[in-house]
Design a protein around this nucleic acid. Structure first.
Lengths: 211, 211
DNA sequence: TAGATTGTTAATCGATTAACAATC
DNA sequence: TAGATTGTTAATCGATTAACAATC
C-alpha cells in the first residue's frame, strides 16, 4: 500500500493537473510537474509508477488520463462523507474551507455540545447535538471525522465518532489520541507548527555569520 | 542543529510537563513522558540528550528544570512577534486560537486587503491594510508570519512579509511557496490532510478481510 | 539516428529502534 | 547489592537520490 507521503503528493499532483487542463495543455513532463509541486522529477515518476500509471517516453504524461487515474486511486467510488465535531472558531473555518469544494468528499454533518448551535445550518452544513453523533454518523455512513473540539473532549469525541463507524480522523486538538491501531489519525497541531517556525526563524538568524 | 521533528516533539514535551507540574509532580521518567507524548522512551531520552539536558539515573528527569531548559532552547530571549496575513474565516480562527496563549510568541499584527477589516481589532489584534505590511513588520521587528490568504495571493504575501524582515512562514495556502532557501516554511494543507485521512479510512476497510 | 524522456535498480541518507554500558 | 533508569553505540528500516537501461 502507498505510504502517507505518497498519498499527500498525489493529491498535490491532481491539483496541479486540474490547473494545467484549464490552460489547454494535453501532456506534461515529470520535471514540469515536479517544479510546480516542489518535488524532484524522479520522485514524481516513482509516485506515478506506484499507482501504475505509465507515461510515454519523449511525450511525458497524458494530463486527462492521469487525472482520471488519480481520481480512481484516491477517491471512494460512491463518494465519502465527513463529520465535523466541534463548531467553534476553528470548526466554522473548516466548514467554510471545505464548503462546495469537492462534492465527493464533503462535510455532511456537524456536532456541538452548545445547544445554541444545534439546529443551525453553518456554511451549508446542519449542526446536531453531540449525543446524536453515533446515530447520525451511522445513518449517513460517514467514515471520516474532523475533530475541532477543546483538548479535554478530544479523546471522547474521537471514540464516539469511531463507535458510529468512523475509520479515519483529522485531529486539530493539540493532544495525541489513544485509539485502536486500525484507525488512521492525521494530526494538525497549529501551535506546534507555529512554535517550529518561530524556532527556525530564530535559528536561521544564528546560522547567518554576518549578524 | 536539531531536526524539525525533534523541535516538534520538544514543544509537545513542554506541554505535557506544564500539565505535570500542575499535579505537583517533581520528577518524571522517560517512559511516562513517552506514553503521554505518543513516542518511545528511547526517543524521549535521545531528544533530551540533544538539548543537553541530563536526567538522574533511577530518579528520571526533574520537571521544573526540564521545563526551564526547554524554554531556554525553544524560546527567543526577548519574545518573538508574529504577523498574520489574511483575516478571512481561517485567519480569524488562527487569531482566536493563539489569543492570550503564549505572551512570548503572540500575533502582534494582522493584514488584509479588505478595507472593511482594516482598523478593526480582532481577538485583540489590530488589522492593517496590506500596503503597510513591509513597514509594520519592520517596525515591530516581527520575524514570523502566518499566511492565510487565497492561493492566488499567497506567493506575493510571503514575499512582502520577507521584505519586511520575516525569516519563517507558516503557510495555510494549499500551494508550494517558492522562496529563498534561508526562509523556513512550514505548510499546513488542510485539504491534503483531509484527502489523506479519507484515503486511509477507505484503504483500511479494504485491508479488513471480512468486508 | 540522436536526443530526450520514462522505468528500474543500486547507493545514499536520515531517523528510529534495539542492544548494551554506566549510574544511582 | 540488586534493580531500574539514563546515556551511548550499533543495527535496522524507510524514503530519497543517483545511476543506468529502455523507449520513442
Amino acid at each position: 500500500m502507498a505510504s502517507e507521503k505518497t498519498i499527500g503528493r498525489l493529491t498535490l499532483y491532481r491539483r496541479i493537473l486540474n490547473e494545467t487542463v484549464l490552460e489547454g495543455i494535453e501532456s506534461i513532463h515529470s520535471h514540469t510537474l515536479a517544479a510546480k509541486a516542489g518535488a524532484s522529477s524522479a520522485q514524481v515518476r516513482r509516485d506515478l509508477m506506484e499507482i501504475g500509471y505509465v507515461g510515454h517516453s519523449r511525450r511525458g504524461y497524458d494530463v486527462m488520463g492521469l487525472i482520471e487515474s488519480l481520481r480512481e486511486f484516491l477517491d471512494a467510488p460512491g463518494g465519502q462523507g465527513v463529520a465535523l465535531v466541534g463548531v467553534g472558531n476553528l470548526g466554522r473555518a473548516v466548514l467554510a474551507y471545505f464548503a462546495g469544494r469537492r462534492p465527493s468528499l464533503a462535510i455532511r454533518a456537524a456536532f456541538d455540545v452548545d445547544s445554541q448551535k444545534v439546529g443551525r445550518v453553518v456554511h451549508g452544513c446542519r449542526c446536531w447535538p453531540m449525543d446524536k453523533i453515533e446515530d447520525v454518523i451511522a445513518e449517513e455512513q460517514i467514515t471520516t471525522a474532523v475533530i475541532a473540539v477543546p483538548v479535554a473532549s478530544a479523546q471522547d469525541a474521537a471514540e464516539r465518532a469511531i463507535r458510529g463507524g468512523v475509520r479515519g480522523i483529522l485531529n486539530f486538538a493539540p493532544v495525541p489520541l489513544d485509539l485502536p491501531e486500525d484507525i488512521h489519525v492525521e494530526n494538525i497541531d497549529m501551535g506546534m507548527a507555529l512554535e517550529k517556525v518561530a524556532y527556525f526563524s530564530r535559528a536561521d538568524q544564528t546560522t547567518d555569520q554576518t549578524t
